[in-house]
Design a protein around this nucleic acid. Sequence first.
DNA 1: TATGTCGAGTGCATATAGTA
DNA 2: TACTATATGCACTCGACATA
Length: 325
Amino acid sequence: MKDIVSLCRRYLLDTLGMNVTLSTLVDQGTLPFFLHDHYIFYNVRLLDEDFIVLAAKSHAKLTPAAIRKHVGLVNSKLNIKPVFLCATISSFNRKRLIEYKVPFIIPENQMYLPDLAIDLREHFIKARTKPLSLAPATQAVVLYVLNQKITDPLTPKELTVKLGYSKMSMSRSISEIEAAELAKVETDGNKRLVRFDKNSRELWEKTLPYLKTPIKKIRWLKSMEDVSLFHEAGESTLARHSALTPPNQPVYAIGIGNWRKNRGNFQVSKYSDEATCKVELWSYAPGLISKGNKVDPFSLYLSLRDVKDERVESALKQMMEAIEW
DNA sequence: TATGTCGAGTGCATATAGTA
DNA sequence: TACTATATGCACTCGACATA
C-alpha cells in the first residue's frame, strides 16, 4: 500500500508539479466499517482543495458501480471530495468511472479530477499476469502451432477459422500467450498478430510448465461403432511410437463437446472388464491438432506424463527423442 | 471530414463439473 | 442439493482503416 501512495505522490509531482503529502485520515470512525475492508483513507490537498483518497487495497473485486457507491458514501459522511486511487485499471472500467464522474488517479497512467478540470491520460496498463496454466483453447493454439510447424504470424480471426473456437476465445488465448511470454504479440492497424518466434523445441520447453493433461474423463465402451469420431490415443498410440506393447483394450480420444453431442449413440459400460475399448474425453478436440487418425505426440505426452509406469515413461522418452523439431 | 466496416476487448451470462 | 470454479459464448463498444 505504501508503494501506491508513493507512486501517486510521484505521479502528481511529475504531471502537475505538485509536491503533495498523503496523510492517513484521522477521523475514520464515521465511515462504515465495510469500507475499511476495501480501502485505506488518506487526506490530500490539491490546488487549494481538500480531498480524501480511497486507496484500493485490492481493485480486483471493486466494480465501477461499487466504487461509485463507496465514493458517494464517503462524500456524504465526511463532506470532503473523494478520489479513488488504484494501481491499474482496464479501459472498460476507466470509461465507466468517467461516465459515473468518479474522480480517480491511476499513477503513471491516468488522472481524472473533474472538480479541478483535470483529465490526464497517458496509456493504459493492462492488468495482465502470467497464467498458472493455459486455458484448453490456448493449449490447443500452441499445440496446433507446434504440430503444424507454423512460423507465419496468426490473427485471432485465422485461429477462429482453423480451430473452430469463437473469436473471443482466440482473443483471450492470444492474451494468455502474451502474458506467458510464449510468443510476440504485435498490432498491425486494427489487427493483432501473434508471432511464434521460438523454434519448436524452445516453444515446447517454454510452454510445458503451463500445459495440462487434455483428459477430462475416462469412459469405457462395450463396442466401438463409429471409429471415425475418435482418434487413437493413450498407450495404443504410444505403442506405435515406441517398443511398448499395445494394451488389450484399445484407447481412443474424443473432444468432450463432440462426446456430448453423440453420447446417445455409444454403449457405455461402468466396468472396464466388460468394455472393448477405453475412451478419453479431452478438453479440446484431438482432430483440431492432429493430422491423421491418431492424436498428436505432444498431447499424447501430456496425457501420459503423470502415469507412474517405467515402461510408459521410457516409451514417452523414446517418442519425444524421435520428434523432428 | 463523415460514415461504414471489421477486428478486437470487455463484462456478463450460461453450461457443466467438482466439491462440501 | 447448493455452492463454487472453469470454460466459453453473447452482446455491446471502441478504435483503426477504407472510401466517398
